[in-house]
Simulated scan of single mutants.
Amino acid sequence: MKKYLLKRLLCLIPVFLGVTILAFLLTGLSSVDAVDLKESSSGGVMSEAEKEAMREELGLNEPKAVQYLQWLKNALRGDFGESYVSGKPVLVSFCEKLPATIALAALALAMTVCLSFPLGILSAKYQNTWADRSISLFCFAGNSFPGFFTALLLLYFFSLKWNLFPVLSMGKGWKSCVLPAATLAVSMTAKYTRQVRSAVLAELEQEYVAGARARGLSENRILFGNVLKSVLLRMVTLLFLSAGSLLGGTAIVETIFMWNGVGKMAVDAVSMHDIPVIQAYLVWMAAIYLLLHLIADLLMGALDPRAKLEGMR
């Protein structure tokens, strides 16, 4: 197990370094000068000598390779610099926004699991019936509608028409989290329902299911006692990757609902050319994806030794 873990970690290091290089170089292509942006955000006027001194202080006159190595060294210590707009340390701002995104991601993932597994099992159990066709229609619509359209539909019906939930989410108690989480859950539920249905149907064609039927076991016992365990193993990796996407912050949904998470922070940073915040967000996205992918692999290896042996090979 230790050998497998070490191998996986060694594979993740070059991927992470590659992401940091891209994050630094792509944001460095911006035509906005950091010193000019600091000047405009402070509301003061700086002389050319003061601007040049600040560029020297920020290391902007150094070659790009030197700037990257210094930035990477600081980033690995959690120091992403200060925001060009607010002047606050980026890590402090990031930690302030993260709990809101974690709460939103947890609720959206819980909704997805609670809806997709029953719907997928029901669709597979009653294949080619009206129930299966109705669920397939929901999945088609959920996958087809873009996130902003789903958000607007939920806002119109549940906020404006029926007045069940607030229009602006933050600061309205537990109800504030329902609509943005539901918006995220709709598309994920549609995707996972189809995944669960396909996995259940594939398992029902296995030889051990035919053997269980020959021994006289009921369909429900076969489905919930044997098939569902195998399906859960298959879904672990997908659920962890979805958690990574949600923790990265779903920018459109957070912006529409004015949810003050890291996704909205990234959108605001892009619109205001706040380079240190954008760089921190990109590094966070890469780190959370790689970490959750590693956890998913390790969990799959613990739950299913065959997956572990395949990964080691």
Score class of each variant (00 low, 15 high):
residue 163 N to W: 11
residue 179 L to F: 01
residue 146 P to M: 12
residue 191 K to F: 06
residue 142 G to R: 02
residue 124 A to S: 15
residue 107 L to H: 09
residue 193 T to E: 02
residue 114 C to T: 12
residue 162 W to K: 08
residue 178 V to D: 00
residue 178 V to H: 00
residue 187 S to D: 01
residue 118 P to N: 03
residue 103 A to W: 01
residue 112 T to I: 11
residue 135 I to E: 10
residue 199 A to G: 08
residue 114 C to N: 10
residue 127 Q to H: 15
residue 186 V to Y: 01
residue 171 G to W: 00
residue 187 S to Q: 10
residue 164 L to R: 03
residue 203 E to F: 03
residue 183 T to R: 02
residue 134 S to Q: 06
residue 170 M to E: 02
residue 150 T to A: 09
residue 100 A to L: 09
residue 143 N to S: 08
residue 156 Y to I: 13
residue 133 R to K: 15
residue 176 S to C: 00
residue 105 A to C: 12
residue 146 P to V: 09
residue 160 L to S: 14
residue 143 N to A: 11
residue 207 E to V: 03
residue 192 Y to G: 00
residue 152 L to Q: 14
residue 198 S to F: 05
residue 105 A to V: 10
residue 207 E to S: 12
residue 164 L to K: 02
residue 197 R to N: 06
residue 128 N to R: 15
residue 159 S to L: 00
residue 172 K to T: 14
residue 107 L to G: 14
residue 157 F to S: 09
residue 143 N to Y: 00
residue 165 F to P: 01
residue 141 A to N: 11
residue 158 F to V: 08
residue 172 K to L: 00
residue 110 A to Y: 05
residue 98 L to G: 11
residue 98 L to R: 03
residue 194 R to H: 08
residue 188 M to Q: 12
residue 130 W to Q: 10
residue 179 L to N: 04
residue 149 F to K: 12
residue 100 A to Y: 06
residue 155 L to T: 11
residue 124 A to Q: 14
residue 145 F to Y: 15
residue 204 L to A: 08
residue 167 V to Q: 09
residue 185 A to Y: 05
residue 100 A to Q: 05
residue 191 K to E: 12
residue 207 E to G: 07
residue 96 E to P: 01
residue 125 K to E: 04
residue 189 T to W: 03
residue 125 K to Q: 09
residue 167 V to D: 07
residue 100 A to M: 10
residue 173 G to E: 04
residue 208 Y to H: 15
residue 149 F to W: 15
residue 198 S to I: 01
residue 125 K to I: 10
residue 122 L to C: 10
residue 183 T to K: 04
residue 125 K to S: 13
residue 193 T to F: 03
residue 126 Y to M: 07
residue 148 F to E: 08
residue 201 L to C: 13
residue 146 P to S: 12
residue 168 L to K: 11
residue 116 S to T: 13
residue 108 A to K: 06
residue 178 V to P: 00
residue 200 V to I: 14
residue 101 T to A: 11
residue 115 L to G: 08
residue 134 S to P: 02
residue 102 I to V: 15
residue 133 R to Y: 11
residue 139 C to Y: 04
residue 203 E to Y: 06
residue 199 A to P: 03
residue 129 T to V: 09
residue 176 S to D: 02
residue 195 Q to W: 02
residue 114 C to V: 14
residue 110 A to T: 15
residue 165 F to K: 01
residue 145 F to W: 12
residue 142 G to V: 00
residue 170 M to K: 05
residue 100 A to E: 07
residue 132 D to V: 10
residue 133 R to N: 15
residue 167 V to F: 10
residue 155 L to D: 03
residue 201 L to T: 13
residue 100 A to T: 07
residue 113 V to S: 08
residue 168 L to Q: 10
